[in-house]
Amino acid sequence: MIARLQLRRPCAVLCVLLIALAHASPAHAYLKFGVRVDSRMVDAKWSALPVRYFINDSPVPGVGPQQFREAVDRAFRTWQDVPGATVAFEFAGFTGAEPLDEDGANTLGFLSRPDLDRVLASTTFTFDSRSGTLLEADIFFNSDFPWSTAEGGEIDRYDVQSIALHETGHLLGLGHSALGETELRPGGGRRVIAAGAVMFPIAFSAGNIEGRTLQADDVAGVSDIYPTGSFRSDTGSIQGTIAKNGEGLFGAHVVAFNPRTGALVGNFALDDDGSFVIAGLTPGPYILRVEPLDDGDVESFFDRSDLDLEFAVTFHDRIVVVPRGGTSSRIGIAVRPR
């Protein structure tokens, strides 16, 4: 359903946003991992719960195996406590096996990987590509960085729990969220200005423990993959297509803004025809904006790099109303080449 309220000028949209964002709440935006099996995409999703996991028994300075396990458990519990989702984990024991070894066991632990020199932590999946069955997922924490499990964090040390929370999101099948912004520092490197999701892929600061808390963005994502019985009937979705010069625009980032709640909600056009779906939305009105990913790390979002980023940020010229338990009528947005 598309309401007839039409915003004639971009500044009007911005004014609405400015007012509404004063009450901004975290955003829903998420990308699900998938693997292509024949011609279909299969979600990286655990078919049987709880997910059993092992903890590698190697310590790093400042963090022993038991401390590591407790921090990881707290991260797991954070995901388990999401009311709209049905995920569960089970500790299977300590092990001498290393993460990233493909041995059929889900293993978390520290490891030195010089070839992953700027990766704090990472999750790997192994699939049987014939069936799309997820066989194993490991999470490695790079032992070349300083780590901490201190309750209040430690200066210049990365917080195991925060990073485990992000990686566990991957373990559950969530991809990266694009709801964040960075800036180039004059001395080199990038810094996050703002992030609206634990699943935002880049930037962090040692000593920061704020990443221990999920945002609604992340909550919507995990609920969409492992929904409780009422999740879908309580929420709605927006669907449509993004086009440039009359052709579908794969990879365009679509953000929905709810002026009533202040929520930012987003996803990507995930087909070559430019179609997108943003699910898990609180029913109500939304303003849609389409934008390219920034310079960054396109391959942190997609396993293809041929995205067309040469288009201008574009607002849909109408308010879209999301019904409870349903989907908006199909929306078409044409973006202008830059």
Binding site: R118, L120, S162, F200, P201, A203
Partner: peptide, 16 residues
């Protein structure tokens, strides 16, 4: 910033 929500993320240490 006004909402006291610090920036966060994990995974990659960004480089220019």
């Amino acid at each position: 910033v006004l909402s006291s929500v610090p920036a966060r993320a994990t995974v990659l240490v960004p480089a220019d």
